[in-house]
Design a protein around this nucleic acid. Structure first.
Length: 438
RNA sequence: GGAGAAGUGACCGAGUGGUUGAAGGUGCACGCCUGGAAAGCGUGUGUGCGGUUUAUACCGUACCGCGGGUUCGAAUCCCGCCUUCUCCGCCA
């Protein structure tokens, strides 16, 4: 959420900045509501003040045993007027809030301006792209030929965009997650967390998924029958990322400033409905309804959030370097950034079968955008509660890392070599081959 | 799921309709005292929103788990919900 003061005092330039994100701020409606709000709020609070004063006098008179009749007549007509006024005020504020909750974050000055991904800027590349002296396969063919994945069974169990992995592939998947967690906890100083996969409405509003992106989420009702269908309300949502739980840890809190920065890491499944992406990446592990991710979250003092962003990207890059997977780092342009981000770096890993780089991590500084929604604060030098800055990044998406390993480590005989750093997690397995199922 | 109890400020804790934003204590900050410290003494110590203001500041309003209701007036009364604790049941 943006600071409403910014919209009040500097509306034009704010609206211009939002336009670079392809967001059309409803200026006229906002202005109309604001004017109205000011009038009605002053009126309402004035009526409340009158009522409070009269009530106080009644109390005083009664405690002295005096007659309070004259004060009663004073308040007589106040009730209706006050009710009318406060109802109106509530309506206006609800509408303003609705507008405000749907406005995306302002891009940082260093973010390139552009309409779509074509304007993203490459900052650096790492690793040598391996050249193969045989005809390479994509990750689906590799895994299917090794009989380690079964999309048909997954479709029977659940539907499209799910998978069943078995044997060495399932273990490799687990190994990747463990390796990432261990690295972030032991080398990068993160606090490991285990958090719920089901969350309430408030948490999703805190990080910005709600109210605008409800269709991207899976909602869950409890098994009990609703006594009255019309009032039945969703109780939980499945998390689309652990960013939601890790960031909301500080919702409605004033964090002791000497405990900053907070750095959390968690490995969780993520659930996304992928509404609006029908037909894209239908093959394989790239875009699934359920996927695992190791998520990194920083909660920091506002002065240090951009330094923290560089650190965060570095931590994600370390994983790819240790796995010896080539990648590049991109700065997303204004038109390609997510709703809550002020600045985002995407890390894209090299996928030989697609002959291109594909997103494997997204690291964002949300500045105070989420903190304002969450009322997440610390006490500044003067003891005044001040909004924190929040950052999040994938470190990394496990399923996509698995894809990258399969494709980059494939051999001419169809087997896949296990990267060196994962061997300790593989129980002696150093190569994926067709399993011997007697 | 059943029965009972409870949710008040950074923390503990009083408060069952009227000068209560909230006694008292702890903590914290500042000052006095001290050679220094402790003890002691004194003063201060919530947040959101709005208005006036360059700002400091001042004024108004809301907030005692959350949401409604009753009333001129609600931390206090009524209704619904949530959470925690104890006992029982069920369960990985």
């Amino acid at each position: 959420m943006l600071d409403i003061q910014l919209l009040r005092t500097d509306l034009n330039s704010t609206v211009e900045k939002l336009a670079t994100r392809r967001y059309d701020f409803p200026m006229d409606r906002f202005n109309r509501l604001e004017t109205e709000r000011k009038k009605i709020q002053i009126q309402t609070e004035d009526l409340q003040a009158k009522r409070n004063a009269a009530s106080k006098k009644i109390g005083q008179a009664k405690s002295k045993g005096e007659d309070a009749a004259e004060f009663f007549t004073e308040v007589e007509n106040l009730g209706d007027k006050l009710k009318q006024s406060s109802t109106k005020l509530e309506q206006i504020q609800t509408e303003l809030q609705k507008i405000l909750l749907e406005v995306p974050n302002l891009p940082h000055d260093s973010v390139p301006i552009g309409h779509d991904e074509a304007s993203n800027q490459e900052i650096r590349r790492w690793g040598n792209i391996h050249s193969f002296d045989f005809k390479i396969k994509d990750h689906v063919s590799i895994a299917e030929e090794l009989q380690l994945v079964d999309f048909e069974t997954a479709a029977k169990l659940s539907g499209a965009r799910f998978c069943v992995m078995t044997d060495g592939l399932a273990r490799l998947h687990r190994a990747l997650a463990q390796f990432m967690l261990d690295t972030h906890v032991h080398s990068h100083g993160y606090t490991e967390a285990y958090t719920p996969y089901l969350v309430n409405h408030d948490s999703l509003r805190g990080t910005g998924q709600l109210p605008k992106f409800e269709e991207d989420l899976f909602a869950v009702n409890t098994g009990e029958k609703a006594a009255d269908d019309s009032t039945h309300s969703t109780k939980f949502f499945l998390i689309p990322t652990a960013e939601v739980t890790l960031t909301n840890i500080v919702r409605d809190k004033i964090v002791a400033s000497n405990s900053l920065p907070l750095k959390f890491v968690a490995h969780t499944p993520c659930f996304r409905s992928e509404a609006g992406s029908y037909g894209r990446d239908t093959r394989g592990f790239i875009r699934q309804h359920q996927f695992d991710k190791v998520e990194l979250v920083h909660i920091v003092h506002p002065d240090y959030s951009y330094a923290a962003l560089e650190e965060l990207v570095g931590h994600a890059e370390t994983i790819l370097q240790k796995l010896e997977l080539p990648y590049r780092v991109m700065t997303l342009c204004t038109g390609d950034m997510g709703f809550s981000a002020a600045k985002t770096y995407d890390i894209e890993v090299w996928l030989p079968a697609q002959n291109t780089y594909r997103e494997i991590s997204s690291c964002s500084n949300c500045e105070s955008f989420q903190a304002r929604r969450m009322q997440a604060r610390y006490r500044n030098e003067n003891g005044k509660p001040t909004l924190l800055h929040t950052l999040n990044g994938s470190g990394l998406a496990v399923g996509r890392t698995l894809v990258a390993v399969l494709e980059n480590y494939q051999n001419s005989d169809g087997s896949v070599t296990i990267p060196e750093v994962l061997r300790p997690y593989m129980h002696g397995l150093d190569c994926l081959t067709v399993p011997d199922r007697q």
